[in-house]
Computed example of a mutant assay.
Amino acid sequence: MPQTADTHEPDAATTPANVTTAEAEAFMRKRSLDDYTLLDVRQTWEYDEAHLPGARLVPLTELADRLGEVPRDKPVLTYCRSGGRSSAAAGLLAGQGYTALNILGGITAWQGAAAEGGLDQGLSYLPAAASMADILALAYAMEANLGDFYARCASGEDEEAKAVLQRLARFEEGHKAMVLRLARSHAPDVDEAALLARAREITAVEGGYGPQEASARLCAVKATRRDVLETAMAFEAQALDLYLRATSRAADLEAAAVLKELAVEEKKHMAVVGRMLDRTPS
């Protein structure tokens, strides 16, 4: 009987387990972001074109020399374009005592959200020296700007698309409130006016997209309900990916903790949009 992600997880083995993309997605959805490592073993240019949110890039050709970058105390899910290189990577890891899960079909078979851009994508908004206050101001601004973007786009001819855009705009109001609660959990005297003032000069929407990039993704086309939701999923995936990449280079533990909390929230937002997509015909 073939091993699956859940049956294989408890102990490292000398051979890796193979999991389908659906099994891998379910595995990650049920776990916190700290409970596994998602490893992209393709080349840098492939990662730049598209990658799974939060994936760590270590090309297969470099993996043997960079094992120290891959935590040993948690399962590692490997993927590539179609499953060949990731199978070799999983075998190498398993042979070194890791619990390794190879995602069959790779990113080609992946049906979930993907992020794009290189390792520095969007990080101009989140420099390594960014303080907790800087990070929270950026998060607040990006949620606010995305809500405004959805509201502006809710003027097309498709009534279902218009309705979902209006709903997404309301979601962003809730997401702004989440950032405010997070800010107050770290600094109880923070108020919304202070966050807004600090965020006023930031024009980016979630994930670090500029306003023109965001508009090109949705407002310039006749969007259906499904188009809108897929675009929303892309924004949330990009935000998750941005926060996780920023976490790894944060200047201090407080900033890293806030970035991780924001990433957890983006994972929840993706799940909400995913459920909406599941109820939308292709």
Rank of each mutant, 00 (worst) to 15 (best):
A183R: 00
L259T: 00
D189N: 06
M142N: 03
D278M: 09
E261S: 07
S32R: 14
E236W: 00
A50M: 12
E46I: 13
S87F: 05
Y150E: 04
A139T: 00
P188G: 12
L196V: 09
G208L: 05
L229V: 12
C219T: 12
K222G: 11
D241R: 00
L77H: 00
M1T: 08
P281K: 10
R66P: 01
K162R: 15
G112Q: 06
E9T: 14
L168H: 02
A154F: 08
A232Y: 06
T61C: 07
A271I: 04
L67A: 09
V41T: 13
Q3T: 07
L168F: 04
L195R: 00
A199Y: 00
A130M: 06
A255G: 15
A64M: 05
T78M: 04
R245L: 03
S82T: 14
G174N: 08
D148C: 01
N145Y: 00
P127Q: 11
V41R: 10
S124A: 15
D134G: 02
D48S: 14
T61Y: 05
T99L: 08
K162T: 15
L60Q: 05
D6F: 09
Q166C: 06
A255W: 01
P211R: 08
G117C: 05
E173R: 13
A246F: 01
L67C: 06
N102I: 10
D134I: 03
L244R: 14
Y125C: 02
L57H: 13
E62R: 09
G97P: 10
R249D: 06
R42S: 15
W45H: 14
V258P: 01
A220Q: 14
D278P: 01
A187C: 07
G97E: 13
A251H: 05
Y243C: 05
E192I: 05
E201W: 05
G68H: 10
L196E: 12
M233I: 03
Q111M: 11
E261C: 01
R200P: 00
T21W: 02
R198Q: 09
E254L: 08
T203Q: 11
I135M: 02
L244M: 14
V264I: 06
D65C: 04
V228I: 10
M233N: 10
E116R: 14
Y98K: 10
T61P: 03
E49I: 13
L277V: 10
A109N: 12
G117E: 01
R170L: 04
C153R: 03
E172T: 02
R217T: 03
G174Q: 05
D48M: 10
G274H: 07
F171R: 09
V228C: 06
I103F: 11
R200V: 03
E143N: 09
I107L: 15
L77Y: 00
E9L: 14
A232G: 08
I135F: 01
A193P: 08
